[in-house]
Design a protein around this nucleic acid. Structure first.
Lengths: 232, 232
DNA sequence: GCAATAGTGTCTTTAAGACATTATCTT
DNA sequence: AAGATAATGTCTTAAAGACACTATTGC
C-alpha cells in the first residue's frame, strides 16, 4: 500500500462513470472494488482524473475504455451533475463530473491491468453495498436521471440491441422503473408516437407464442406527450 | 478518481452564472462587460474561479453576491452542465460549472468594486451581443433548461414575488416560452394541479378590471401531468 | 387441443383545446 | 354605460387506463 499523499493546494478534476445496463432482467451498474485507502475494500464508481488539455467527455470515454472495456459506440453518454463538496475525498479537493453511460447488454468487465475487481451490481441490491466517497449520492442522481429521461425521451432503446421487439422495450421501462405496464396500452403508445420506432419487415424467433415483430429505434429523441411513471 | 495521480500543470475550476429574471415583460439575463483580454470589450456571464476547499454551490453564491449583489434567498439556483473543452479559454484549461439562477424582478446591478459594467439583456436581443468564450453555448443550454423545467415543475413561480395572480403566472410562461396561452385553460390547469398553488383570501389591486385573486407557490415541485409547450 | 406470447379493439376516464359566458372592477 | 381584466362553464378532441378479444406460435 502506497503512502498517503498530503492534500495539495490544488483542485483536481475527475470524472465518475455511472454505467447502466440490463442484465438478467435487472437494472445494473458497474462498480470497481478499491484496494487502496481511503475506502479500501469498498466499491466505487469507475472514474479517473482529467488530464490538462483533455476534454471532459474524452476523459469519460477514456475511463470507459480503461475500466470497462467499452468503446464510444457501445454506450449513450450524458453528463449528470458535478460534485465538488470539499470533504467528499479525504485526499484533497476533488471536483467530479458525473456521467451516466447507458448500453445494451454490456459485457462482464475484463480483469487485468487497470482494474482488479469490477462487477455488475443490480441496483436493487445496492443497499447491501458499501460505497466509497459520496458515490451513493452520485449513483442515485444518475439513476433518477435515467428513470426520468425514459418518460420524455426515446432513450429506452439504448438499453436494447439495434433490433428489438415491443415486449423487450416494455421490459426496459418495467425494469428501470420497477413497475409493470399494460402490454396493450404500451404497444399503442410505442407504435403511435411519431419518431419512436421504425417498423421492420422481420420477426423475432418465437419463444412459445406468436412471433414478435422487430423494430429499430426511430429518429425522434423526444416523446410527446411523455410516457409517465405516475400511472403505475 | 480511483486510478492515476493528478498531473502537474493545473486545471482551473470556475463557475459561470446564468442569472435569469423577467424585466419589462422580457426574459433577461445578466451579463458583465470584460475589460481585460482575452475578449476585451465583449460581454460575458458573471463567473469566478473556485478556491481550494470551497464548495461549488458556495462559489456560485459568492459570485452572485459579488457581481450581482444577490443573496441566497433572492434566487433559485440549479446546476446546468459543466463545460471543459480545452480551447474554450485561451489562458489555460478552465472547467466551468454552469448554474442557472432564477429570481423575481431582480435589481439593476450596482457598479463599483468588482464589476465595471453589468446590465440586463433581453434574451430576445442576444443575437446582437458579442459574447466572450463559449458563453453563447452555455447561455443557450441554461435557457433551454429553464424553458423545459417550466413544463414539468412548478418553477415558474420563482420568477414572481411571493404573492401573485394567475395572470402573472401565465405571463411568466408566455414570456419565457415566447408563446401565448389560453387564459381560461391556463387558469384551469394552474388551479387544479395539486401542489402548484395555494389560494389566498386576498386580491390584487385592480388594474381596470375584476381584481385577481392572489396565490402563493404550493409545496409541490412536479407538475403532473406536465404543461407542454407543444400546444402552440 | 392448451398454454404462452403478440397484437388489436372497445369502452371509459382524464385532461387539454377552443371557445362562450359571467363577474367585477375603472373610467 | 363601455371597456378591461378575471374567472367559470361548455363542447370537442386527444390520449391514457382498463380491460376483452383475436392471432400465431410451441407443446
Amino acid at each position: 500500500m502506497s503512502a498517503s499523499t498530503p492534500p495539495e493546494p490544488q483542485i483536481h478534476v475527475a470524472v465518475d462513470m455511472i454505467v447502466l445496463t440490463l442484465r438478467d432482467e435487472q437494472l445494473s451498474v458497474l462498480l470497481v472494488q478499491r484496494h487502496d485507502e481511503p475506502y479500501g475494500g469498498a466499491w466505487a464508481l469507475p472514474g479517473g482524473f482529467i488530464e490538462v488539455g483533455e476534454d471532459i467527455e474524452a476523459a469519460a470515454y477514456r475511463v470507459l475504455a480503461d475500466e470497462a472495456s467499452l468503446g464510444t459506440d457501445d454506450v449513450y453518454l450524458e453528463q449528470v451533475r458535478t460534485f465538488g463538496t470539499p470533504g467528499r475525498d479525504p485526499r484533497g479537493h476533488v471536483v467530479s463530473v458525473a456521467f451516466m453511460a447507458l448500453g445494451a447488454d454490456l459485457p462482464d468487465p475484463r480483469h487485468g491491468d487497470v482494474v482488479q475487481d469490477a462487477r455488475w451490481w443490480a441496483v436493487e441490491d445496492l443497499a447491501r453495498v458499501n460505497l466509497a466517497f459520496d458515490h451513493g449520492i452520485v449513483l442515485d442522481a444518475a439513476i433518477e436521471r435515467a428513470r426520468a429521461k425514459l418518460e420524455y425521451t426515446t432513450l429506452a432503446a439504448t438499453f436494447l440491441p439495434p433490433e428489438f421487439t415491443i415486449s423487450q422495450l416494455r421490459a426496459v421501462y418495467e425494469k428501470v422503473w420497477g413497475t409493470t405496464l399494460d402490454a396493450g396500452n404500451f404497444h399503442r403508445k410505442a407504435t403511435r408516437t411519431p419518431g419512436f420506432l421504425v417498423e421492420l419487415e422481420r420477426y423475432a424467433a418465437p419463444t412459445g407464442g406468436r412471433p414478435a415483430r422487430l423494430y429499430r429505434k426511430g429518429h425522434g429523441s423526444a416523446l410527446v406527450p411523455p410516457l409517465l411513471r405516475s400511472g403505475d
